[in-house]
């Protein structure tokens, strides 16, 4: 496979590797970010801080 790429195989493979690394980095970052936000929300939820409870609280305090 490497032989078929000619004299500049290193550059071609390098370009594909670099693109793969950058792409994977973005995917992993987005995925970790999602996990993190989900965890924080679940944590807040476990402590009883949800949108519904707070919304009631706010509307009660307003009325």
């Amino acid at each position: 496979m490497m032989a078929s790429l000619g004299p500049h195989a290193g550059f071609i493979v390098g370009a594909y590797l670099a693109a793969l690394i950058v792409t994977l980095a973005v995917i992993v970052w987005v995925w970790l970010d999602y996990r993190r936000q989900r965890r924080i929300l679940a944590d807040l939820d476990a402590r009883g801080i949800t949108r519904r409870s707070l919304r009631q609280g706010v509307s009660e305090s307003l009325s």
């Binding site: 987005v30 970010d33 999602y34 936000q37 929300l41 807040l44 949800t50 949108r51 706010v58």
Partner: peptide, 19 residues
């Protein structure tokens, strides 16, 4: 996916502010 993350991040922020 990134938009979803951002919406969740804002939700966290709002919840913390309200708290």
């Amino acid at each position: 996916a990134a938009m979803r993350n951002e919406i969740l991040r804002r939700r966290v922020r709002t919840l913390r502010l309200m708290q």
